[in-house]
Structure formats: C-alpha cells, structure tokens
Amino acid sequence: MSEQALYNLEKLYALSDGNSEFVTHMVNMFVKMVPEFQERISASYSGGDLKDVGDAAHKIKPSLDMMGIDSLYQPIRDLEKEGRSGEDAEKVKEIMSEVSSTLDRVCEQLKRD
C-alpha cells in the first residue's frame, strides 16, 4: 500500500461481530453514498443554501466517524458549524473542497482494497 489508509473498519467489524460480508455491504453502500453527498453540498452551495451544506454535513458525520475516517473528524464538524451559521461562504467552500477531495481518496482506496 503506497499511501496510508484514510479509513479504519475496526468499528464496523466490532459492531457486526466480525461479519466481513456485512462490512463489505456497508462499504459498498458508503462508496455509493459519497457522490450523492458531494453533489448535494455542491448544488446547495451554488444555490446559496449554506444551511443545507451544514445539514448535509451533520447527517453524514456519524457515518464518517464509524468508517474511521479520522482525518475528517474535525473538518466535517467545522463544515456543519460554518454551513449552518452561513456567515463565511469562503470558509465553507474551503472546507467543502478539503472534505470532498479526502472523500474521493477514501473511495478510491476502498474500491482498490
């Protein structure tokens, strides 16, 4: 593995009593869910609906935690907070692109692994 894994499936294994079939199923679902999330936040951002960006971040947050994507632990919370406050569009955009690109890399890794 050339780069360090950005996710950790330990929590999913623990929750499913080590059922790898279930974990694979959840990973596949996650990989499908990510583009939907990315589309939602980018559409909302373009439409000027920063609050919906925050709400979307709020929704996906527990899933990112459970997938063990530690590098997004703080950014997703910042996105939730900044989006909902709607004060600093630039900052929202900045975090959005960080979150989105990390998620792209996570999905690539997941598909590869």
Partner: peptide, 9 residues
C-alpha cells in the same frame, strides 16, 4: 433514521 447507512449499521 433517515440516514440509510447509519440506520442499517
């Protein structure tokens, strides 16, 4: 739970 992924877990 409206978050399908989390709900399923």
């Amino acid at each position: 739970e409206d978050d399908q992924w989390y709900g399923e877990v």
